[in-house]
Amino acid sequence: MIQVKNLYKEYCVAQKGKGLGGTVKALFKNEKKIIKAVNGLDFHVGSGEIVGFIGPNGSGKSTTIKMMTGILTPTSGEVLIDGRDITKQRKEVVNDIGVVFGQRTQLNWDLRLEESFELLRHIYRIDKKEYNETLAVMDSILGIHELLNKPVRQMSLGQRVKGDLAAAMLHSPKVLFLDEPTIGLDVGSKFALRKFIKEINAIRGTTVILTTHDLGDIQELCERLIIINNGVMMEDGNLSEIVERIAPYRTLVVEYYDSEVPSHPKAEIISVSDNIVRYKFMKSEITAAALISDLSATKPIKDVGIEEAGIDEIIKIAYTTKTTDGN
């Protein structure tokens, strides 16, 4: 469905000096620096997948999604959607994609929602029958019908995002791109949005690609995660695989009767407070049961617990890992 090949994007950024002196100097002399926002991405997304793009701010994930939607021209490399290059055949290829950017809207601010839909109907040349069918589907998932007569400027953010989602789906695109769709939404709207993504994916087989900072989005939606940092792909796979790969350890929490704490050759003590010790151990090296029995052999244990690396921890690790030791 989507093929990203050897994708690069460079920006030329003017360097500015500090303070008044620096800015005055910059009036006459320009120092430029090239920033590699996306630095060689290669991946493939199959039809009907839901893929989450995650990465810290400035990691290049927005730049990537903008190149995939034809907004930015890659410095080199290409994005193929159904085998066609989006940069070279933009006007044809965009018929197959829908785009929702959380912070901005494609709806006309001053007019009723339906007017914006009507314009899109003309832009994408959707015939009346198909338009009504799609609208009925959107209504069943999002309850869009009651919003149709409302001016967009009077809508809440949640309602507006619903309007934008429906607008992006009117021409029944094969791929839906969402850039931070849940940003700023309340819990109810977030829930509705996730339900929407799952349902259009199930009912229409729409491929969904989204960027997000929201852990709930990732956990609930993304069968596949692509983690990007410094313009380079850090991880690509499903959530549990990634956990297995970048955090193949667990933490054993042991409470003793006194503060004299035993150590173990295959476990690392990461913290000691009062009588509670945390041991970090590799799943591949030792099992939790073996570790507990070894420890209880040296000293009586009052209580134990096991902690898995959480998704937020995984992301933290992925974000902080440097490009050099990635891949």
Binding site: K91, N95, R104
Partner: peptide, 13 residues
Amino acid sequence: EGDFDRFLTRPLS
């Protein structure tokens, strides 16, 4: 402001 974004994702000039 990046306002060309939405024009670029539509099948018109």
